[in-house]
Design a protein around this nucleic acid. Structure first.
Lengths: 125, 125
DNA sequence: TCTATATTTCCGGTAGAATCGAAATATGTT
DNA sequence: AACATATTTCGATTCTACCGGAAATATAGA
């Protein structure tokens, strides 16, 4: 039972991972996160990352399809923002799949790890 | 400065996401996690998921290359296991990228969310 | 060595993804 | 309406991923 629902889930998450699994798109998501929650207009992304407009448009379309970014129009500009809910969903999925299993880490450890890697990141920069 | 290192990181994580971004491979990782930490022989995975041997071999090779699975030989069998460290790394990356930003969620909330989704999952099954 | 089993490598076919210039569309301004 | 700018859609090309049968390799046992 619930096989169909499970199948849909796997397909959906695979698609989300695939959307992040291309260098230009991962860059886009990262960039949008630095600009969160205001986001960036397509043209700004284009300029920042040096991606041709038409190519960028395809990537944004893909990210939008997989719900990793949201978009709102303001005049002739399209403002893209990262969909942090979707990213949290991915984290939860990974956490559910990975970290509740047998020997895997405890929630409290996860926080410790997250904090220490943040500290480490800041130390290195 | 550190542009090169950052580039490498993005490329690496994009490759990891891409490895998880194919339905058969996401299934494989999930299956290996259910069998963690013992893992499964390639033939068992093949039988369980109904993937032809050569195709499966390609997928496992990809996952191995991106360090998402480990492998050990035992006689003629190759035992594959999920690399939970790599999965934790992905969680930390996403957490770092996503959840330390502006309005994003706090570590303590992350645990709450993770726990409640686990509870919800168990309720549904 | 011969046989059996597990798995990979080889090879070719095919579908889909990524790319980007050019043309089309959308919106706002004068 | 004409023009300017932002972005998408079109069209064509190239590249890469996925797939799976057949052959090769690895290991163990008789």
């Amino acid at each position: 039972m619930f096989k169909a629902r499970d199948t849909e889930q796997v397909i959906r998450y695979a698609a989300m991972f695939a959307a992040m699994g291309a260098e230009p798109r991962l860059r886009i998501v990262r960039l949008l996160l630095t600009a969160h929650p205001q986001g960036l207009a397509a043209g700004e992304i284009q300029e920042e990352l040096g991606i041709p407009a038409s190519t960028l448009s395809h990537h944004l379309e893909k990210l939008r399809t997989e719900e990793l970014v949201k978009v709102r129009r303001e005049g002739t500009f399209l403002w893209y923002t990262a969909n942090t809910e979707a990213l949290e969903e991915i984290i939860n999925f990974l956490y559910a799949e990975c970290c509740t299993r047998n020997k895997a880490i405890e929630p409290s450890d996860l926080v410790t790890i997250a904090k220490s890697s943040k500290a480490e990141r800041e130390r290195k920069s």
